[in-house]
Every structure is written in C-alpha cells, then in structure tokens.
Nucleic acid binder design. Sequence first.
RNA 1: GGCCACGUGGCGGAGUGGUGACGCAGCGGAUUGCAAAUCCGUGUACUCCGGUUCAAUUCCGGACGUGGCCUCCA
Length: 471
Amino acid sequence: MSGTPQLTLYNTLTRTKEAFTPLDPSNVRMYVCGPTVYDFAHIGNARPVIVFDLLFRLLRHVYGADHVTYVRNITDVDDKINARALRDFPDLPLNEAIRRVTEKTEAQFLSDVSALGTLPPTVQPRATDNIGEMQTLIAELIRRDHAYNAAGEVLFAVDTMPDYGQLSGRNLEDNLAGARVAVDRHKKNPADFVLWKQSADNEPGWDSPWGRGRPGWHIECSAMSERYLGQTFDIHGGGLDLIFPHHENEIAQSRCAHGTHAMAQVWMHNGFLQVEGQKMSKSLGNFITINDLLQTGAMGGHAWHGEVLRLAMLMTHYREPIDFSLKRLEEAESKLRNWQQAAWGAEISESGQPDASVVKELADDLNFHRASVALDFIAKRANRNEGDAKHCLAATLRFLGFSLDSLLTSDEGWEEPAHIATAIAERLAALNNKDFARADAIRNELAEQGIALMDYKDETGERRTRWEVKR
RNA sequence: GGCCACGUGGCGGAGUGGUGACGCAGCGGAUUGCAAAUCCGUGUACUCCGGUUCAAUUCCGGACGUGGCCUCCA
C-alpha cells in the first residue's frame, strides 16, 4: 500500500466532491441497493452493478482486499413479485409460486452479473431473511415516537424529523404542490411512508405485533445495512432514481431509530441511460436485458462478451447520462481488443500491481475515462516493446475487471489451438520457401474458420505469427 | 407546478479563465511478397443570448433542448 492515493468521491448529500476518509480503515463498509427479483435485469440495472464493482476493486486496492465489506441486497419481497407469481404460476400455492419466481430470477441475475466481470459482494442478503431485523427497527421507531399505527399500517411520521429531505434537497411543502398521486386520508402528513402493511390472505405475510403483514419498501435496506455494516457506515450507492424517496426514507428510518446524525458518510448515485437516443421502455420495444446482450442478437445481430458490455458502460463517467448504442458496443469491443492484443504474451501473475497513474485517475471520483487514456498510453508502450509495459498493462486490465484474452480466443474452444499452431508453422515454412500461394491458401483457410492471422517481427527480428478469433 | 442533472469536433469522451487531451473513424507516411496488426504524422468542437474579465468552452444570469425525480422505477 505504498503511496496510497487519496480517494475523492462525489457526495450527493453535499453535492460536492470530497476527500474520502473511512470511519475505520481496517473495515471500509459499502452498501449498494440490489435488484428486486421479479424479472430479467435490464442494462440499466447493470450500470450500478458495474460502477460499484469498480469502486469495490479500488477500495480493495487502497485499503487491502480483506479490509472492505461490500453488501448488495436482494429484494425478494415486493408486490411486483407477487403479481408476477400470480401471472406465471396461477395453479401453485402463492408461497410456492413466489419462491419459484425469486429463485429463478436471482440465479439469472447472479449469472448475468458475473459475466460482466464483477466480483461477488462480501454479503448478498435477502430481504426475507431479515424480517425479524426489520420488525425490531420498526418497533424502535414506534417507541421513539417516529412511527404510528393507522388503518392497519405502520407509518413513518416525517414531521418528527426536522431535517427530512436533506439528501434530495426538497422540502415537504414544495413536494406536495404538484403531487400526482392522491393522498391517503389516514396519513398524518401526506409524505409519511409505510413501514409495515397488512397482508390479505392471498398476499405473502409474516406475523408481527401489528398483525400479519409485510414490510414497506425502504425498511429492508435500513435493517440489512445495520446488520452487516453497523448503524453508520462509509458509502451507500445506487441509481439516481433512488435518491427520492428510497434513500431519503432509508436515512429517515435509520437515523431516527438509532439517534445518529448520519446513516452513511457518502451517498453515491449513478446516472441513467438511454438506448439509441430514446428512453428505454417496453412500449418502445427497446427494452434490453443484460441477458439479451450476452446471449442473443438483440443488438447488432450477435451476442456480446460481458466484458465488452462492462467497458461500454464504464467509457462514460458514472454520473453522466449514457446513450447506450450499437456503436458504443462496437467501440468498446475494439478498444478492449486493442488492449488485449497489446498485452498478448504477458506473463500472468496474481501479484502484478496495477499502473499507478490508472489508480490515481480512478481515485478521482472514479474517472474511468481518464484511466483508460492512461491505459492507452501503456498499450502504446507495450506495442513498442518498451520496458515492462506489457506486464503492467496485463496487471492493470485484470485490476479493472477485464481478462487478457476474452476477445482473442473463442470461449468454447471450438477450434483446437494445436491445430492452428500446426497450420501457422506450416505457413511460416511455406513463406521461408517463398511459396506465397501455399501460405495464402493456409491463411484463407483459417480465415474461413474465423481465425485471423497477423504477422509481426519479434525482438530478434524474426518473423512470427499471431492469431485471434474474429467476428 | 416544484426539485435535480446534462448539452464539447463525423462518433465516443475528459478537462481547463489565456498554447484546441485522448480513443475510434478519415487522410498522409513507414513497415509488409500481399494483407492484417503495429508505428509515425495530421484536419475539424465547446447549444444560443446577455454579463463579469485584458481574456470564457471554462465564472454569473437567462433562453432553448434532452433526461430524471415528486410514494415503491437502477
């Protein structure tokens, strides 16, 4: 950890970039809102997963891999899940139907996300495994007079928190002026939100002091972050849309239940994305899931490697809006391919350290694009065979979550590398005999199999040949 | 109606009060049996209108445009 860079992160709470100082450098704690498991995750969902994975990697680099705890929850209780269960499994008992939906969707999410080159979070808690913790929190909020029971619901009373609205920068009066949704009569203040609601017989529910019911949306994150990270922790992240009401309400719950002045020190939010210049929506027919990109030709007529999707997402700073497009994927693919080509042949070593200039750029509020410029520079040096640039490039690529050969070799080894090596050797022999017709025939033959050959000279000036899978 | 982002060359995309990053594509050259790859070089920009300033793409104000949030959407 010599020369530890100073991290700077943009904090939504203060709307400024701030120097980051962990509460406890021996255990840096980060919570990110994860998926509600009722359907395939779309590419918008992929953005925070990738962005905060990058931050996780950076934190591990700076503070040590064993000194960072990253929690990403899985929301498996939600009315959308209930609806999906009823739709997909109308003949099953509700609990069984729900279990089918959430298990299947969760497995799909984890598989999609690992293809994006993301490390698994330290803990991935499920909401349904933390119902007791949520009830404890709700009971405490009632005891402290921050919550009340009305019309069968337990509600949080926003009037009991003087600085409610700090994160989103909106005050309650402004909010109400143009509210679109009719106000429930039983609420003391229209902005009060549900902590616990009653369940009908055909809805999932848990016994509680307030009757059989289920938790409100926000309480799970308050409960799970406390359980795994404590009452106050370092970083809380998620999409821009979560600032209000979700994160605002999490803060209200946690701080009021614990009597603390902060839930997380730093609140980070990634920007939204559009698809080909339009907002992504099912009605426009441009709704794209991670799995569509990984497995089908939904965009560009063929599947894309998860690392290409990762790079396409990181090419733009995490707080900026992204226009996700075919052109972007193509550019990401060629960029990653160039890096991998430049790193080709580097020895793979687990101990290799990432380039300091790349780390430094990332340390400035995750400026991946500047980091990629530094990486381009290293790649150029590697192509000129300068110093240990090749190994440095390889180590840095791995640090950033990219493999060294994903675009250069076929995933499933559909072609025997040994077979290719033989053909290359034969062609080189033909070339040495000036038998160009034979040499070109071999090259064409391989080209038809999707293998591209590239001749180059090694350090001694001898002609050599490299190959890669081409699209 | 309220609040919040964003608007840079053909495309992607950083950044800065004063010498127009960087990548892709384009163009020129080197290398090559021919290719590909690689290397070297190169053109084009800061939505509009005011203001502050010796000087603004960069600061301030306004307009226009795009997107987001305003009770469960990353």
